[in-house]
Design a protein around this nucleic acid. Structure first.
Length: 571
RNA sequence: CGGGGUGUGGCGCAGUCUGGUAGCGCACUUGCUUUGGGAGCAAGGAGUCGGAGGUUCAAAUCCUCUCACCCCGACCA
C-alpha cells in the first residue's frame, strides 16, 4: 500500500482530550478519531489492526469448536424484561423506542438473544454441546466514557456462549475457552494473566478475567497474585485470609465519652486521640436497595463492597447520604458508632472480635467513645468483608504473599449455569426424555480494547511498537527522496518482492523530508522499517530497522527483501 | 448524578478580566529552493468565536438560558 493512497492523518501535537498514552498515540498516529464521547471512527490503520485481532480470535475460536454467527444489535425489550436484566442492567443500557412506541435495546451483550436462538432451535441433548459466537458491535451507556477505546460506549467484542447438558459439560467448555484465550492473547504478544473475578451483574457462579499487566496509568483494575502459587484474583474478588491476631492481655476498661470537635475522619481521630487506627472501629452506614445497614470494620481496613453486596444479595449498594445518617444516628457523618444503633442491622468484620478498648463514634456530634468493648453493643452478624491487600498471605497456598499490579481486562469467562435458559424457557430433552434447561457459559473478548491495550503495553517515547501479529502492516518502506529515481525504483521493487512473498507493506511515497518520514514511521509503529537513501546507496546498502529497539541492520541492496523477511521472522 | 474546567479556521492555542475592524503555531493550496531525523522564502485559501435570547451606538468579550466536550468524584464515617 502506498501512503498517498490511504489515509494516515498523523498529528504533531497531542490531542487535548486524551489522558493516557495509548489514547494519545492512537489519535496522533492517525488510527482513530472521536465522533462523540466514547464513540470513535476507526481509520484505515486501525481497521487493519482490528481485522488482524479479529482473525486471530476467529481462528482460535474455530479451533476450539465454536461456531460463528451474527446476532442483531437491536433487541426487543421483552427479552430483557424476561430475564430481569431490563431492571438490573439499568442505565448502562442504550434504549430507544421505535415508531410504534415499542421499547428497544441496543445490545451490550447477547445472552438473551443467544438463549432465544437455542430455545427455538435446539431440542435434544444430541445437539449438544454447542458454542455459538459472534464478533459484533456493542453498546453500553457508560457513566463516564474515557481513555479512548478503553471505556467506550460503542465497541467491538467477540462474545461466545456455550450450551451443555450439565455442569460437567460446562466445565469442559469453560476450560476450552480459557485455553483458546491463552492462545489468542499470547499470539497478540501479551503476557496475559487469568484471574478470578466476581460474577457481577452477569449472574452465574464462577468467573475469570484475562488481564494484560501494564505499568502505565492505563491500568484500570488492581490484581493480586501469589508470589508462590498460581493464585490470582482481582481486588474485588481476592480472598483475604482472616488474620490470626495475637491475644492481647489488655484488661477491658470502662467506656468513656470524649469530646472530638470536628474530628470526622480516621486520620483526624487517630491524631487527635493519639490512638493508632487499629484501635478504631469504623461504622459505615450503607443503603442496600434503600434499606440501611451498618458495617463495622477496623479503622485501618477497607471494606470490599463487592463482598458486602454479594452477602446482602442486593442490586444497589451505596453509602448513606448525610441526611439519612442524621436521621438514623442523630449525628453528623463522622461520628457514627454502633452503641445505641437500635434500628439498623449491624454486620461486623470478624477482625473486630479480637479488639479490646477500642474507639467508636458516639452518635453525637463532635464526640467519640473510647475504651469500648464488644459487650457494649449488639452485633447481628460477622461477615468477612475486608478488602485484601498486597503483602497478605495467599489464601490458596498459605505460604506465598500477595503482590499487587494493575492491568487491563481484555477478556472474561463466566459460568452462567441455567439463569438465562430458565428465565427464557430454553429447554432440551435429555437421554431419559426429561426436559432440562441448558447449562450455559459466556465468554467475551474486547476486540477494540485489546488493540488499545497493545499500545498501552508496547510503546516508547516516539510512538507505538506493535507486536508483529497485530501491526497494520508487517513492514514499512521509506524511500528518503521521492524525487530520486533510484530510491523509488528500489523501494517499489522491494515492496513487490515482499508482497509476493505474502507480507503486508506500507510504502511512504510522500514527497516529504526524511525527518518527517522517520518520525511518522516511529509513531505509527510497524515492526520493521526499510530506509533507502543516498548515504546507504553510496556503500551499496539499505538499512533495515527494528522498531522495537531501533537497531539497524545494513544489508546489500539486492538482498533487501530476503533479509527483511528474515529479520521480521526473528521478531 | 455532584464538583471543577473548556468551547475561537482541520488540529493545538492566545485574545474575554478592562466591549471598539478576529490573531498565532501546525496543517492546507501555488511557486521556487531543499532532501538521512518534524526545511526555507514568497504568495494564498479557510473562522455563523458552541447555540439562542438580552444589554449596548458597538459583544468572542457583559447578562440569562441552553448544548457539547474534558477532568475529579460518586467507597472509608
Amino acid at each position: 500500500m502506498l501512503w498517498t493512497k490511504t489515509h494516515i492523518p498523523t498529528l504533531r501535537e497531542d490531542p487535548a482530550d486524551a489522558e493516557i498514552i495509548s489514547h494519545k498515540l492512537l489519535v496522533r498516529a492517525g488510527y482513530i478519531r472521536k465522533l462523540t464521547a466514547g464513540i470513535y471512527n476507526y481509520l484505515p490503520l486501525m481497521q487493519r489492526t482490528l481485522h488482524r485481532v479479529e482473525n486471530i480470535v476467529r481462528q482460535e475460536m474455530n479451533v476450539a469448536g465454536a461456531i460463528e454467527i451474527t446476532m442483531p444489535v437491536l433487541h426487543p425489550a421483552e427479552l430483557w424484561q424476561k430475564t430481569g436484566r431490563w431492571d438490573t442492567v439499568g442505565k448502562e443500557q442504550m434504549r430507544m423506542r421505535d415508531r410504534h412506541q415499542h421499547d428497544m435495546v441496543l445490545g451490550g451483550t447477547h445472552e438473551e438473544v443467544v438463549t432465544w436462538i437455542a430455545r427455538g432451535e435446539v431440542r435434544s441433548y444430541r445437539q449438544l454441546p454447542l458454542n455459538l459466537y459472534q464478533i459484533q458491535v456493542k453498546f453500553r451507556d457508560e457513566i463516564r466514557p474515557r481513555f479512548g477505546l478503553m471505556r467506550g460506549r460503542e465497541f467491538t467484542m467477540k462474545d461466545a456462549y456455550s450450551f451443555d447438558v450439565d455442569e460437567a459439560g460446562l466445565k469442559i467448555a469453560y476450560r476450552k475457552m480459557a485455553e483458546a484465550y491463552f492462545k489468542i492473547f499470547r499470539r497478540c504478544g501479551f503476557d496475559v494473566k487469568m484471574v478470578e473475578s466476581d460474577v457481577g451483574a452477569m449472574g452465574g457462579f464462577a468467573a475469570h478475567e484475562f488481564m494484560v499487566p501494564v505499568e502505565t496509568a492505563g491500568g484500570e483494575e488492581t490484581i493480586l497474585s501469589c508470589s508462590r502459587c498460581d493464585y490470582a484474583a482481582n481486588i474485588e474478588k481476592a480472598i483475604s485470609v482472616p488474620l490470626t491476631i495475637p491475644k492481647t492481655d489488655e484488661e477491658p476498661r470502662t467506656k468513656e465519652l470524649v469530646f472530638t470537635p470536628g474530628m470526622k475522619t480516621i486520620e483526624e481521630v487517630t491524631s487527635f486521640l493519639k490512638q493508632p487506627a487499629e484501635k478504631l472501629v469504623k461504622t459505615m452506614i450503607y443503603l442496600a436497595d434503600a434499606k440501611p445497614v451498618a458495617v463495622l470494620i477496623r479503622g485501618d481496613r477497607t471494606i470490599n463492597e463487592t463482598k458486602l453486596k454479594n452477602h446482602l444479595r442486593c442490586l444497589e449498594l451505596e453509602m448513606a447520604d448525610p441526611s439519612t445518617i442524621m436521621r438514623l444516628t442523630g449525628a453528623q457523618v463522622g461520628f457514627t458508632g454502633p452503641i445505641g444503633l437500635d434500628n439498623v442491622p449491624i454486620i461486623a468484620d470478624p477482625e473486630i472480635k479480637s479488639m479490646v478498648n477500642f474507639v467508636v463514634g458516639a452518635n453525637k456530634d463532635d464526640s467519640h467513645i473510647i475504651n469500648v468493648n464488644l459487650d457494649d453493643f449488639r452485633i447481628d452478624e460477622y461477615v468477612e468483608l475486608r478488602r485484601a491487600e498486597a503483602g497478605e498471605v495467599c489464601p490458596r497456598c498459605g505460604t506465598g504473599h500477595l503482590e499487587a499490579y494493575s492491568g487491563i481486562e481484555v477478556g472474561n469467562l463466566f459460568m452462567l449455569g441455567t439463569k438465562y435458559s430458565e428465565a427464557l424457557g430454553a429447554y432440551f430433552v435429555d437421554k431419559d426424555g426429561q426436559e432440562r434447561p441448558f447449562v450455559m457459559g459466556s465468554y467475551g473478548i474486547g476486540i477494540t480494547r485489546t488493540a488499545q491495550a497493545a499500545v498501552e503495553a508496547f510503546h516508547d517515547d516516539k510512538g507505538i511498537i506493535w507486536p508483529k501479529a497485530i501491526a497494520p502492516y508487517d513492514l514499512h518502506i521509506i524511500p528518503l527522496n521521492m524525487e530520486n529515481d533510484q530510491h523509488k525504483q528500489i523501494a517499489f521493487s522491494v515492496m513487490e518482492k515482499l508482497e509476493n512473498a505474502g507480507y503486508s507493506v506500507i510504502l511512504d511515497d510522500r514527497n516529504e523530508r526524511p525527518g518527517v518520514k522517520f518520525n511518522d514511521a516511529d509513531l505509527i509503529g510497524m515492526p520493521v522499517r526499510i530506509a533507502i537513501g543516498d548515504k546507504g546507496l553510496k556503500e551499496g546498502i539499505v538499512e533495515i530497522v527494528r522498531r522495537k529497539d531501533l537497531s539497524v541492520e545494513k544489508v546489500p541492496i539486492d538482498n533487501t527483501a530476503e533479509k527483511a523477511i528474515e529479520i521480521f521472522k526473528e521478531l
